[in-house]
Design a protein around this nucleic acid. Structure first.
Length: 1043
RNA sequence: GCGGAUGUGGCGGAAUGGCAGACGCGCUGGCUUCAGGUGCCAGUGCCCGUAAGGGCGUGGAGGUUCAAGUCCUCUCAUCCGCACCA
C-alpha cells in the first residue's frame, strides 16, 4: 500500500516524482561523467580519488538488499569527495563469464549470452534506481569481446613472460625488489648469447662450466621449447585437479564442498591429474606477502592472505634409499647392481633418494621412519614384492576416498609398509618407508621424514604401528606439567599405560596428588605445584626424553635439542656426525642445514601452501585462450593483432557429462565448434585451445579497464592509468578476501614488472562491508521455520500460524527457503531510494553483519519527510515561511557547526550510521523552530545530499539554485562553534556520581574543583570526611576521593 | 584442532580509560485530526520506593586503576575462514 494518498496535501514529499526527475537530470546533464586528464572538462589541478565497488555477478534472481549496502556507502563517499574538490572516478560494470551463468542457462534451456544480457539489463535498471553517481559511460561487461580481448592480451603477457627470481631491481617507486617478471625474449637472448645454459632438468643454468650444463645452440627445437615452457608464467602442466565428470569440467577448490562433491548439483568430484593451464602465482608469493604490509586493509584479511600463501621455512633433506646406497668407511657407496660410477651426491641431485621437506630440520635425528603420499611417484618403484599387493590395494583405496573423508577430524591414521628402507643421512640408520594418506601429495615434496618424537601426527602413527619414537627436543616445563596433570589426573584414558609407568617410576607422586586432590576439590595450578614439589619438573622432562611413548603425546614445540645424536650409539656417516645436543631450536636448524648443504644431502628451503593457479576450465562460457596447438604438441601464441579470439556462437554449449564414469576424459564443448577450432597458419594446421578461462579472469583487471573502457588499442591508457591508480577505496564483501584479491594482486604485479602499470598494488584501502541478514524463527525443537509460517501476535512475540506454539526470533542468512529475502525493488517502490539508502546506512557499522528489519524502515522515511518539511510548506508546496534571511541565533549556529563536524568526520571514517544520527539531531533541533535561517539551512542541504541525493537536489533547486549541488563546496565548520559553550560535568565521590554542575566548556581544573566542592550536595556528603584527593578531568568530570 | 570476528535495554545500535544506553525502532501517555501505518509534545535499562532517594547493570570469573563496555588474565557462547600444510 503506498504511503501517500492522492487526496493528500499538494506539497507533500513526493519521492517518486523527485527521484525520477533527478535521475533523468543527472543522466541528461552527464553530471557524473569523470573526464580523464586531457579530456574536455578535466580539472587537472584537482586531486583524484578512485573509488571502486566490487562489481556484481548478475544472477537471475536480481539484486538483493545485500548488494547495495557497499554501493550506498561508496556513493556517499564519492559524492562527498566531489564536493571536497576531488576528481572522482566511480565506475560500475558487470562480471559476466563463468559457471553460474552457464549453469543457469542450462537449467533454463537458453543460451548464456541471452540470460547474461537479460540479467545485466535487470541489474542495470535496479542499480539506476538507487541514484548512484556512477560514471555510466565507463560501464564494462567482462563477457563482451571488446573487454575480453584484453583479458586474452594479459594472458599472452603471462605466457610470454618468465620470472627471474634472482633479479634485483629498482622499481619505479624507488624501492628495491627481488625477482621480476620479464619478457621471455630476454631469456632467449641470454640463452642464445651463451651467457646462460640449460641444466639436466631443463632449467636455466646461469654459471658457465657447471657440470651437466648444455648450451642453447646444441639443443633441439623441442628441447628449447621445453626449457622455455617450464619458465613461462602461463604454462601447461599435468596437475591433480578436481574433476567432476557429471558437470564435465574441472572445478576449483571452492566449487567443491567438504564432502568431495560439487557445490552445483552435488555430483562426485575426483582428484585426477589432468593437463591444465597453470599460472605461476607461487613465484610472487613473497612479494604478495611483503607488499601487504603497506596496504590499508583490514588486518583479518591480510592474515587470511598470509595464511593462504602459507610461507614456511625449513629444509629439503635427501634420504638415500637403502636399496641403492650404503655407507662404507664414511662414504656413500652404491649397493650391488647400482651404477658404480655414481659415487657420491653432488648437491644438485642424489639419485634414488627420497626428498622431503621439513620445517624442523633440527629434529632430523628423531626421524625414525618415512611416509610417502599414496600418489607419490616413488611408491611403485620402491615397494618390495612381498608388500606389493598390500600397497597397491592401499593406494587404490586412498585415492578413491582422498577428498571424501576429509571432514573426519578424529580420523584414524592408516598406512602400509612398502618393505623399503631409506637411510637417515644424519645418523646412517636405515628407517622404514611407509605409504599413508596423512601425507598429502600436493604439499612440500609429497613425502615426509616422520619424527614421532616431535610431531603429533607422526606420534599417533608411530603408536598405532609400533614404530620407534625418539624425543629430540626437551619439552618445556609448562608442557610437561600439563601432560603430567592430564595423566596423573586420569583425564585421558589413553594415558593409562603411561600413568602406570609414571606411577612405577615416581611412586611418591600418585599418592601425594591423590591426597592433595582430596583436600582441595578439583585440579588447578596447585596440583602442578604438588607435582613440581614432589617430583621436580626436571625429572619429568628427563623422563620424557627417555620414554616419550609413556607420555601419550609428542612435544612439538621448540626447545633445546637432546638425543641428537642419541647417546651411546656410534654413528659413522659421510661428513661426520653433526651434534646438536643443547642447542636451541633456531641454532640447531642453522647448524644442521649448513651440515646438510656441506654434505650434499639437503639445503635450506622455503615452501608455500599456495599452489600455482589452475587456470583452465572445460566450459563454454568463458574467455577462450589465444593459443594454438600444433600437431607436434607445440603451442604457439596468437599475435596481439589476432585478438579477440571470440567465443564461437554455439547452439549446444552444454558440457559432455558422464555422471557415473570417474575415468571419463574431459570433452570441452568448444571441441564441437569444428570450424572455429581449426586454424591454418603458414600452411600448417593448428587446433585452437579448447579450454576457457575461469570466472576470476575478468575480475582480475577490471579496475584498470574502467580507466579507459573504450580504448581499442590498449588494455588501459598509461597516462590515465598513472593519474587514477591506485584505487583509493575498494569496498566489497569479505567472501573475496583471498581469491579475487590475491589473483588481482598477482596480475597487477606481473603488469607492473612488465611496465604496463605504475603501482605495485592495485587497491590502497580495502573495506569489507558486512552481510545483511534476515530474521528466522526457531521452534521448540530448535528447527528453523520459514517466516511466512509465523505471526507476530504482540510486539516481539511470535507464534506458529494457526497454533499456540511460540517461536523465538533469530538472525540467519537471507535465503529463499526461509522466505526472508527482501527485494530492494519493493522497498524503493514504497519509500523511495533515498529512504532505502538511509536505512541501509543507518542499520549499524558498515563492516558489521546485521539483520534487515523492515519495521525500522519507516523511521528513515520519516526523516526524509521531516527534512522536507523544514523547507517546504506541505499545504502550498511553496518554500516554508519559517525560512528566513535573518542571521541565525547562536544556538542554531552552534548546532549547525556541530552537525557539520560530526557528519564530516564520520563520513571520513565510513561511520555512516552515526553521521545519520547527527542529521537526526539537527532535524530534531530545527523542527520546532518557527524561524529557520537560510545561512544554516542551505549548507545543511549540502550535508545531507550525499545520503539522500534526490531530496538534496530537489531542495537545493527549490532554494533557488539552478544547477546540481554535486560540485558545490562541502560546508566548512568552525571547531570553536562546534563545541558547546556550557557543559555538564559529573561530580563523583569515590567514583559514584553524586551531582552535576554546569560550567563553561573551557573551565580549568581549579575552577572545576572549586565548583564541585561548592555544590550543596557535595558539601553535605563530604561533611565530616577528609578529602584525600580530587581528580579533575576538564570537560569531563570531577572525582573526589574521601578518606 | 588452528586462525579471525562478535557478545551492551524489548529490537538495531552509541560511547578518545572519564556521566553506559547517543540516534532510530517499538512501547506508554497527551495534543492535533472526520479519520489514521499522519504530525507535534512528553516519558521509556532493570529492581526497591508515593516521592526524595537508593541498589543493580555492557556473556561469565578474576585483576590493574581514583575511574573499565573500553586495558590484562582465564572462561563461556555464537558466527566466519582454514583444516593431517610436514
Amino acid at each position: 500500500m503506498p504511503v501517500q494518498q492522492p487526496h493528500e496535501k499538494p506539497g507533500r514529499y513526493d519521492f517518486s516524482a523527485i527521484e525520477a526527475r533527478w535521475q533523468r537530470y543527472w543522466e541528461e546533464q552527464e553530471t557524473f561523467r569523470a573526464p580523464n586528464p586531457g579530456e574536455a572538462g578535466a580539472q587537472a589541478d584537482q586531486p583524484k580519488y578512485y573509488i571502486l565497488d566490487m562489481f556484481p555477478y548478475p544472477s537471475g534472481a536480481g539484486l538483493h538488499v545485500g548488494h547495495p549496502l557497499g554501493y550506498c556507502a561508496t556513493d556517499i563517499v564519492a559524492r562527498y569527495k566531489r564536493m571536497r574538490g576531488f576528481n572522482v572516478l566511480h565506475p560500475m560494470g558487470f562480471d559476466a563469464f563463468g559457471l553460474p551463468a552457464e549453469q543457469y542457462a542450462i537449467e533454463h534451456n537458453v543460451h548464456p549470452a541471452q540470460t547474461t544480457n537479460q540479467n545485466i539489463d535487470m541489474y542495470r535498471r535496479q542499480l539506476r534506481m538507487f541514484g548512484f553517481s556512477y560514471d555510466w559511460s565507463r560501464e564494462i561487461v567482462t563477457c563482451e569481446p571488446d573487454y575480453y580481448r584484453f583479458t586474452q592480451w594479459i594472458f599472452l603477457r603471462l605466457y610470454e613472460s618468465w620470472y627471474d627470481e634472482q633479479m634485483r631491481w629498482t622499481a619505479p617507486d624507488g624501492g628495491e625488489i627481488l625477482g621480476r617478471a620479464r619478457p621471455i625474449h630476454e631469456l632467449v637472448a641470454e640463452l642464445e648469447s651463451g651467457n646462460w645454459g640449460v641444466n639436466g632438468s631443463s632449467d636455466i643454468e646461469r654459471t658457465a662450466g657447471t657440470p651437466g650444463r648444455r648450451e642453447w645452440a646444441t639443443l633441439s627445437e623441442p628441447q628449447r621449447r621445453i626449457a622455455l615452457d617450464r619458465r613461462r608464467l602461463a604454462y601447461l602442466d599435468e596437475v591433480p585437479v578436481n574433476w567432476c565428470p557429471a558437470l564435465g569440467t574441472v572445478l576449483s577448490n571452492e566449487e567443491v564442498d567438504s564432502e568431495g562433491r560439487s557445490e552445483r548439483g552435488d555430483h562426485p568430484v575426483y582428484r585426477r591429474p589432468l593437463r591444465q593451464w597453470m599460472l605461476r602465482i607461487t613465484q610472487f608469493a613473497d612479494r604478495l606477502i611483503s607488499d601487504l604490509d603497506a596496504l590499508d586493509w583490514p588486518e583479518p584479511i591480510k592474515i587470511m592472505q598470509r595464511n593462504w600463501i602459507g610461507r614456511s621455512t625449513g629444509a629439503e633433506v635427501l634420504f638415500p634409499l637403502a636399496q641403492a646406497w650404503r655407507i662404507e668407511n664414511g662414504q656413500w657407496k652404491r649397493t650391488e647392481g647400482g651404477d658404480p660410477a655414481e659415487t657420491a651426491p653432488d648437491g644438485n641431485g642424489f639419485p634414488d633418494a627420497i626428498r622431503v621437506y621439513t620445517t624442523r630440520p633440527d629434529t632430523l635425528f628423531g626421524a625414525t621412519y618415512m611416509v610417502l603420499a599414496p600418489e607419490h611417484e616413488l611408491v611403485q618403484q620402491i615397494t618390495t614384492p612381498q608388500h606389493q599387493d598390500e600397497v597397491t590395494a592401499y593406494v587404490g583405496v586412498a585415492r578413491n576416498r582422498s577428498e571424501l573423508d576429509r571432514t573426519a577430524d578424529t580420523r584414524e591414521k592408516t598406512g602400509v609398509f612398502t618393505g623399503a628402507y631409506a637411510i637417515n643421512p644424519a645418523n646412517g640408520e636405515p628407517i622404514p618407508v611407509w605409504v599413508a594418506d596423512y601425507v598429502l601429495v600436493g604439499y612440500g615434496t609429497g613425502a615426509i621424514m616422520a619424527v614421532p618424537g616431535g610431531d603429533t601426527r607422526d606420534f599417533e602413527f608411530a603408536c598405532k604401528f609400533d614404530l620407534e619414537i625418539v624425543a629430540v627436543v626437551k619439552p618445556s616445563a609448562e608442557w610437561i606439567m600439563e601432560r603430567a596433570e592430564a595423566m596423573v589426573g586420569g583425564i585421558e584414558k589413553t594415558a593409562d599405560a603411561g600413568f602406570d609407568r609414571i606411577n612405577r617410576e615416581f611412586p611418591e607422586l600418585a599418592e601425594r596428588v591423590a591426597r592433595h586432590r582430596a583436600q582441595s576439590a578439583g585440579l588447578g595450578a596447585s596440583t602442578l605445584d604438588v607435582l613440581n614439589k614432589n617430583v621436580g619438573v626436571d625429572r619429568l622432562i628427563e623422563h620424557y626424553t627417555r620414554h616419550p611413548r609413556s607420555w601419550g603425546a609428542a612435544f612439538a614445540g621448540e626447545g633445546s635439542a637432546v638425543n641428537s645424536p642419541p647417546s651411546g650409539k656410534s654413528v659413522n656417516v659421510p661428513g661426520g656426525v653433526c651434534p646438536l645436543d643443547g642447542l636451541a631450536t633456531p641454532q640447531a636448524k642453522d647448524k644442521i642445514i649448513a651440515w646438510l648443504e656441506a654434505n650434499g644431502v639437503g639445503r635450506g628451503a622455503v615452501h608455500y601452501k599456495m599452489r600455482d593457479w589452475v587456470f583452465s576450465r572445460q566450459k563454454y562460457w568463458g574467455e577462450p585462450f589465444p593459443i594454438l596447438h600444433g600437431s607436434q604438441g607445440e603451442t604457439i601464441a596468437l599475435d596481439d593483432a589476432d585478438l579477440p579470439v571470440e567465443l564461437p556462437p554455439m547452439e549446444n554449449f552444454k558440457p559432455v557429462i558422464s555422471a557415473e564414469d570417474a575415468d571419463a576424459v574431459p570433452d570441452p564443448p568448444l571441441g564441437r565448434a569444428r570450424d572455429w577450432m581449426c586454424v591454418e597458419r603458414n600452411g600448417k594446421s593448428y587446433r585452437r585451445d579448447l579450454n576457457t578461462m575461469p570466472q576470476w579472469a575478468g575480475s582480475c583487471w577490471y579496475y584498470l579497464r574502467f580507466i579507459t573502457p573504450k580504448d581499442s588499442k590498449h588494455f588501459c591508457d598509461s597516462d590515465a592509468e598513472r593519474y587514477w591508480m591506485p584505487v583509493d577505496l575498494y569496498v566489497g564483501g569479505a567472501e573475496h578476501a583471498v581469491l579475487h584479491l590475491l589473483y588481482a594482486r598477482f596480475w597487477h604485479k606481473v603488469l607492473y614488472d612488465l611496465g604496463h602499470v605504475s603501482t605495485r598494488e592495485p587497491f590502497r584501502k580495502l573495506f569489507n562491508q558486512g552481510m545483511i541478514q534476515g530474521f528466522a524463527y526457531r521452534d521448540s525443537r530448535g528447527r528453523l521455520v520459514p517466516s511466512d509460517q509465523i505471526e507476530e501476535r504482540e510486539p516481539d512475540k511470535f507464534f506458529l500460524k494457526g497454533g499456540n506454539e511460540p517461536v523465538t526470533r533469530v538472525v540467519a542468512k537471507m535465503s529463499k527457503s526461509l522466505k526472508n529475502v527482501v527485494s530492494p525493488d519493493d522497498v524503493i517502490a514504497k519509500y523511495g531510494a533515498d529512504t532505502f539508502r538511509l536505512y541501509e546506512m543507518y542499520m549499524g557499522p558498515l563492516d558489521a553483519s546485521k539483520p534487515w528489519n523492515t519495521r525500522d524502515v519507516p523511521g528513515l522515511f520519516k526523516l526524509c519527510q521531516r527534512i522536507w518539511r523544514l523547507f517546504v510548506d506541505e499545504d502550498t508546496g511553496r518554500l516554508s515561511g519559517a525560512l528566513t534571511d535573518a542571521a541565525p541565533d547562536e544556538a542554531a549556529l552552534r548546532m549547525f557547526h556541530k552537525t557539520a563536524q560530526r557528519v564530516t568526520s564520520d563520513i571520513e571514517q565510513l561511520k555512516f550510521n552515526t553521521a545519520i544520527a547527527a542529521l537526526f539531531d539537527f532535524v530534531n533541533f530545527m523542527t520546532p523552530k518557527t524561524t529557520r535561517p537560510r545561512a544554516v539551512m542551505e549548507p545543511f542541504v549540502l550535508l545531507v545530499s550525499p545520503f539522500v541525493p534526490h531530496l538534496g537536489e530537489e531542495l537545493w533547486q527549490r532554494l533557488g539554485h539552478d544547477s546540481t549541488l554535486a560540485y558545490e563546496p562541502w560546508p566548512e565548520y568552525d571547531e570553536h562553534l562546534a563545541r558547546d559553550e556550557q557543559v555538564e560535568i559529573a561530580v563523583q565521590i569515590g567514583g559514584k556520581i553524586k551531582a552535576r554542575i554546569m560550567v563553561p566548556a573551557d573551565a580549568d581544573r581549579a575552577t572545576l574543583e572549586a565548583a564541585a566542592l561548592n555544590h550543596e550536595r557535595v558539601k553535605d556528603l563530604t561533611a565530616n570526611k577528609t578529602i584525600r584527593k580530587v581528580i579533575v578531568v576538564p570537560g569531563r568530570l570531577v572525582n573526589i576521593i574521601v578518606g
